[in-house]
Design a protein around this nucleic acid. Structure first.
Length: 579
DNA sequence: GTAGGGTTAG
């Protein structure tokens, strides 16, 4: 049978050149239509999926196929998202298939379309596919199940993801990893760790992909102890560490304050790609090690790895934190020369760079040249810059824009009121406070966390829902007494945070950073350092109290926020642009 | 022929 012989040739085909010859051969032979359909579908599969693939040729052959079979449709759907993960073509193809009604979608089709929906977070389309899964009876297929789970996780609908996950009877390592990564992605770190533990008790063996998700959750939470434990687990169980896992480890150690360990792991990566380099550069930048970050960038260039837009975010923020204005400008130009179009994040770095160098006027002009409307982050950067440089008029403008753009974010009111306090505009300050009260914004959702015994405890300003709230409150009272006895005079920001709570020393109590530190003092003993992570940096000058607590209790306190580290041991700090 | 993973401005 000629049909079988050609089919066999396609399966064994070594490259695109030969497949084109076979393609021409099929078209010139007088074969029955069914045979032509069958063979052309096979060629579509080859072109769309093989490593020699050519999606455009696949599409051409698909169009020539009299009755493309489901294999052919599936190959094309998958082929399109393999060449471009943001492609919408797989969704169009699926719609076309549904409209035609023939051939019927199978489990492969559904899994591929769900993957395409996950890639572009096409929530409505994915939900329609879910409805079809329900009707089709393919709901018990494990590939379709993980496809659905991944789809909801990527769309950040964790409730629906959990629902799908609960319905999976036999959860394999892939289902567990998807669930863990879904939790980690939206910052539900304790849920991610919990799922990881549950996975082990279900006797499912984690692999390198699982580890990447768990390590990322650690990085997000600043959970160094768990991160170290996971790293030891990887080594003990000899889990292969590929570049993705190594990059996740570099990022985790850097974000948890262990830059030396991050460097060590980075050094051990044999062939580094742009993400590995970016992780290292960003890690050095957040530690205030600007020169090392720029050195790393030079080495990256020497290794002929093309920097990405993320690399430049690291480079520019390193320049900003290191006060390297002219270097920053130079990197900005070279980024554009490389054809990387600056995003609002890059502009944000430059605005920060100029503001930190007291070039606030230039920063304002720079904002006007942006092709984007300034977002709240840009206005906040400017406002903080104006506060430091006591620029009343420009600060006021930034503050107004901020409140107009984001009136429901209490952080903005606190920033503006602190700004007015710093320029001694007391009436304006109280006006902002009044406005905040009138608009019903009671607390700043400042948040700090501390990891103790494998659990991340989160504290939100003014929130006392923690099961040990009573003990924490008591510990804070003792701390407040001792701080007060040490002769500490409350600063403007302390008083601001104490509005409506005038009890002596209580200003220490409401702040999330204080809550986390008090919990650390309560639950751990020296010489273990108290490491806390702050998620919001409204009130930088609050560090003064932290420094005093560190001295009184003779405890090392390390505070990490989104952009830098502060160490409190007799006032020393790992960061150059301190205060 | 199928599913899960790493870097991102204040």
């Amino acid at each position: 049978m000629e049909e079988e012989r050609i089919g066999y040739l396609i399966e064994k085909c070594p490259d695109t050149r030969v497949i084109r010859q076979i393609h021409a051969h099929v078209l010139t032979r007088l074969l029955p239509i069914s045979a032509v359909s069958f063979l052309l579908s096979k060629i579509v599969g080859f072109c769309a999926l093989s490593r020699h693939g050519d999606i455009n040729h696949a599409r051409k052959v698909f169009a020539q196929t009299p009755n493309p079979n489901i294999f052919s449709w599936n190959s094309l759907i998958r082929g399109y998202y393999l060449v471009g993960s943001q492609s919408k073509v797989p969704l169009f193809l699926y719609k076309e298939l549904v409209r035609k009604g023939y051939p019927s979608a199978n489990t492969f089709t559904l899994a591929f379309v769900l993957k395409a929906c996950s890639n572009i977070s096409a929530f409505d389309e994915g939900k329609q596919v879910h409805a079809r899964v329900f009707r089709s009876g393919f709901g018990s297929n494990q590939f379709v199940q993980t496809g659905l789970l991944n789809f909801y996780a990527k769309c950040e609908d964790i409730g629906l993801a959990e629902k799908v996950f609960d319905e999976i009877h036999e959860r394999n390592v892939i289902a567990w990893s998807t669930m863990i990564s879904g939790y980690a992605m939206i910052g539900l770190v304790n849920k991610a760790f919990g799922a990881f533990r549950e996975m082990q008790t279900s006797n499912v063996v984690p692999d390198k992909v699982t580890m990447v998700s768990v390590i990322s959750a650690c990085a997000m939470a600043g959970a160094l102890d768990i991160g170290r434990w996971i790293h030891a687990y990887i080594e003990k169980h000899m889990i292969e560490t590929d570049i993705m896992l190594s990059t996740a480890l570099v990022n985790m150690y850097a974000k948890c304050g262990c830059i030396e360990k991050a460097k060590e792991i980075f050094k051990g990566i044999p062939v580094k790609d742009h993400k590995a380099w970016s992780s290292m550069i960003v890690g050095l930048a957040v530690h205030g090690l600007a020169e090392e970050a720029l050195e790393a960038f030079s080495r990256m260039e020497e290794s002929k790895v093309t920097p990405s837009h993320v690399t430049f975010i690291g480079v520019l923020s390193a320049c900003a934190h290191g006060g390297l204005v002219s270097e920053g400008r130079r990197y900005w130009s070279s980024m554009i020369e490389l054809g990387i179009e600056p995003s609002i994040e890059h502009y944000g770095c430059m605005v920060d760079l100029l503001c930190r160098a007291s070039l606030v006027g230039e920063a304002c002009n720079f904002v006007q040249t942006m092709p984007f409307y300034p977002n709240p982050v840009i206005w906040r950067t400017l406002l903080i810059g104006c506060q430091k440089n006591k620029m009343l008029h420009k600060g006021e403008v930034a503050g107004e824009q901020l409140l107009a753009l984001e009136p429901s974010n209490p952080e903005n009111y606190i920033l503006l009121s602190n700004f007015y306090a710093s320029v001694a505009q007391w009436e304006k300050m109280s006006h902002v406070r009044k406005m905040m009260k009138e608009r019903g914004m009671k607390v700043v959702p400042g948040c700090a966390s501390i990891e103790i015994d494998g659990f991340v405890h989160e504290f939100v300003m003014g929130d006392w829902h923690h099961p040990e709230a009573k003990e924490i409150r008591q510990a804070l009272r003792v701390i407040a007494e001792r701080v007060s006895d040490a002769g500490y005079e409350p600063q403007v920001s302390d008083v601001l945070h104490n509005v409506g709570n005038e009890e002596k020393g209580i200003y220490l109590c409401e702040h999330s950073e204080r809550l986390a530190i008090a919990y650390g003092i309560l639950k751990t003993k020296a010489p273990v350092p108290i490491r806390i992570v702050k998620n919001l940096r409204v009130c930088i000058d609050c560090h003064e109290v932290t420094k005093i607590i560190s001295k009184i209790y003779e405890r090392e306190i390390i505070v990490r926020d989104r952009v830098r580290f502060h160490k409190f041991v007799d006032g020393t700090c790992s960061c150059k642009d301190y205060w």
